[in-house]
Computed example of a mutant assay.
Amino acid sequence: MKKIALWGATWVLLVVVLLLPPIVVVTEALKSGLLASLATLKDPDGIAAIWLTLETTVVAVCFNTLCGILAAWLLTKYRFPGRAALLVMVELPLSISPVVSGLVWLLLFGAQGWWGPALERAGIHVAFAVPGIMLATLFVTLPYVVRTLVPYMEHQGRDTEEAAALAGAGFWQILLRVTLPDARVALFSGVLLTTARAMGEFGAVSVVSGHIPGLTETMPLHIESLYNGYQTVAAFTMAALLACMAMAAVFLRSAPAAWARYREVQE
């Protein structure tokens, strides 16, 4: 009886917390019909928001994947003074509110910030411009590749890498041909988590972007602008598109494990 009650409570929780919100979003988006919903996506500001979100996501994923791989290698293959502090710093974006991190970038690069006036005199705009959005997104998505790679690399040990080094392989050969092929599932998971977070980031980006329609509005910011402007169908349509993009990344994350189980069953 307890098992059935626990099973039922779990499913109720999953439906209410995980399934109901996207269902409501899609229902509201289609309230006026599919054609009306799709027509809202032709808005120039909406198209600009989609492209800015994709560009920001690509930059964040590429940069943080490379930095995450190198940081995970450093943290797992070497022991050095300050290693524990570096691990804490990597986790910092997960514990700090995104709004606070956005305020920090504004303090540094805003018109009244530490470096903002000098940069603006040089014609470089960071706050209330695309570079500020990029910096804010890079910060909040920094930990994911590192967090997924570190446990796996620690489990790997160093035997195969030391053998490759004795055979004359260089750093990049060892990394690309020995370490990463074994850690590809963990790396793939970290990349997809970074992708999903970059697409959906709101707090930090909201602070540094200035909410300029068509210029510095990402999809989450554009959704807020549409909803505040009582454009409900357009807001929920954009929200449904963003949710589908993020959920696709999350579902892809489970694909390698599902494929491995399928291979085991077939064998």
Rank of each mutant, 00 (worst) to 15 (best):
A122K: 03
Y144Q: 04
C62Y: 04
T141P: 06
A165H: 04
A183R: 11
P93K: 07
W259E: 04
P131F: 07
V205Y: 09
L142E: 05
P93F: 05
L241N: 07
Y230H: 13
P131Q: 10
G33N: 04
V208C: 10
E28F: 13
F202L: 14
Q173H: 12
S189G: 13
W105Y: 14
T53L: 08
G168L: 07
W7R: 05
K42L: 14
F236G: 08
A163R: 00
R177T: 03
A198D: 09
A186R: 00
E120L: 11
V25R: 01
E154M: 09
A235V: 06
C67G: 05
A164Q: 03
V26M: 00
M199V: 11
M89T: 02
L176F: 13
A49P: 05
Q266I: 14
L108F: 11
G200Q: 08
V100C: 11
M247C: 02
Y262P: 01
V178C: 15
L34E: 00
L19C: 02
I124F: 09
D159F: 08
V208E: 04
K31P: 01
T57W: 06
L35F: 14
A5T: 03
V208Q: 04
P151G: 10
S225E: 11
P181M: 07
S97F: 12
M199A: 04
L142D: 10
L18S: 02
T27G: 06
A71T: 15
I96N: 06
P22K: 00
H125D: 05
L107P: 01
G229S: 12
I212A: 10
G210K: 08
Q173C: 00
E55D: 07
Y227W: 13
V208I: 15
L149C: 02
W114P: 01
G33E: 03
E91V: 10
A48G: 12
V59F: 14
L52W: 12
S101K: 10
S95E: 08
V233H: 05
M89A: 15
V205L: 09
M199S: 06
I47D: 03
F80Q: 05
V100R: 01
V88K: 01
